[in-house]
Design a protein around this nucleic acid. Structure first.
Lengths: 160, 160
DNA sequence: TATTGTTATACTCTATAACTATA
DNA sequence: TATAGTTATAGAGTATAACAATA
C-alpha cells in the first residue's frame, strides 16, 4: 500500500505494509522492550507447552537444581513470585513427582525443596527447548550482538 | 552472607546478597528480557497511574494522534490488542472526552477515531512521564548504549 | 511479635465464541 | 460470505488479607 513518513521529531519511522503507523512509539526503549518480550515469551510458552510446564515452573526447577534444599519462600522471593502464588506451582510439580518438599528440621515452618530424578529429566528437556530459542536469537542477531544485548539488558536491570 | 560461585558452564553468576542463586538463568536473553521488561513496565504503569491511564490507552492515544480517523480495529491490530478488548479501552477514553468515534461514511460498520483537545492534553502529559522514564534509562546506560540497546531490540523484534 | 505456608479472593490482561449491522 | 464492533465469558498472572503452626 502507501508508504508514509512520520512528520514528527528527527527519527523517521515508516510503515510499508499499511496506511497507518505507530507514531513515535518505536523510538522508545520501554515500548520496544515490551513488544519484543511479549513475542519471545509467547514463543517460549508455546514451546514449553509440550512439556505441560509453565515458565515460572521451569524457573523453579532451575532454582531448586542450583540450590538443593532451598525453601519455598526463598524461591519465590528470588523469582518475584508471591508466596501465595507459589503454592499451586509447587503443588503441581510435587503431584507430578518432579520435586519433594521435606519439613526442615531446623525450622519446621518451612519446606526444603529437592529435585527428584523425574524432575531432573523434565528440567533437561525444558533446557533443550530454551536452548533452541536462545540459538535462534543468537543466530538472528549474531553471537556478538547477542552478547551485547544480554549485557545491556543486565545493566538495565540495575536501573534505580 | 556467603558468596557462592555457580559450578556450571563457563559464565559464573554470583550472588552476594543471599545464600541462594538463580543458577544459569541470568545468562539467557529470554529470562533477562522478561525480568527487565517487568521492572520497566511496572514502573511505567505506576507513573501513568497519576493520569488514570493504562499503557494500552496511552498507546492508543499515540496511534490516533499519528493516524487521525483511523479505525478501531486498525489500532487494535497495530498494537496487538484483540478487538473485543479494544471496546472497553476506547469506551473509557470516549467517556472521559479524550477521543470521539464517528461512524465512517465510507464503511458504516466501522468507527473513525479522532483525538479531542482534552485527549491531546492528556497525551502530552503522558509523554512527559514516558520521557522522564526514557531519560532515566538513557542516563543509566549512557546515550550510546541506550541507542545500541534500542537497535538490538528492534532487530530482535524481527525474529522469525 | 514475626515468619512459613495456606486459603480465599479480587483485579488485570488476554483469548474465544456468538451476536448485530453492515459490506 | 466476510468484516467491524459488541457482549459474555473463561483463563492466566498477580496482589492482598487472614489464618494455623512455628519461631
Amino acid at each position: 500500500m502507501t508508504t508514509r513518513r512520520v512528520r514528527r521529531s528527527g527519527a523517521s519511522f515508516e510503515s510499508h505494509t499499511s496506511g497507518v503507523d505507530l507514531g513515535p512509539l518505536p523510538e522508545y526503549v520501554g515500548f520496544v522492550l515490551r513488544r519484543v518480550q511479549s513475542q519471545v515469551f509467547a514463543d517460549f510458552i508455546q514451546s514449553l507447552n509440550e512439556l505441560d510446564l509453565r515458565p515460572a515452573q521451569f524457573a523453579i526447577l532451575e532454582a531448586v537444581d542450583a540450590n538443593p534444599g532451598m525453601t519455598q519462600s526463598d524461591a519465590g522471593a528470588m523469582l518475584g513470585i508471591q508466596k501465595a502464588n507459589m503454592v499451586g506451582l509447587i503443588a503441581e510439580l510435587e503431584r507430578r513427582g518432579m520435586i519433594v518438599r521435606r519439613r526442615s528440621p531446623r525450622d519446621r515452618r518451612s519446606y526444603a525443596l529437592h529435585l527428584l530424578a523425574e524432575g531432573g529429566r523434565l528440567l533437561r528437556r525444558a533446557r533443550r527447548l530454551r536452548d533452541a530459542q536462545e540459538a535462534r536469537i543468537a543466530n538472528h542477531l549474531g553471537q556478538e550482538s547477542r552478547d551485547r544485548l544480554l549485557a545491556l539488558l543486565t545493566r538495565l536491570a540495575h536501573l534505580d
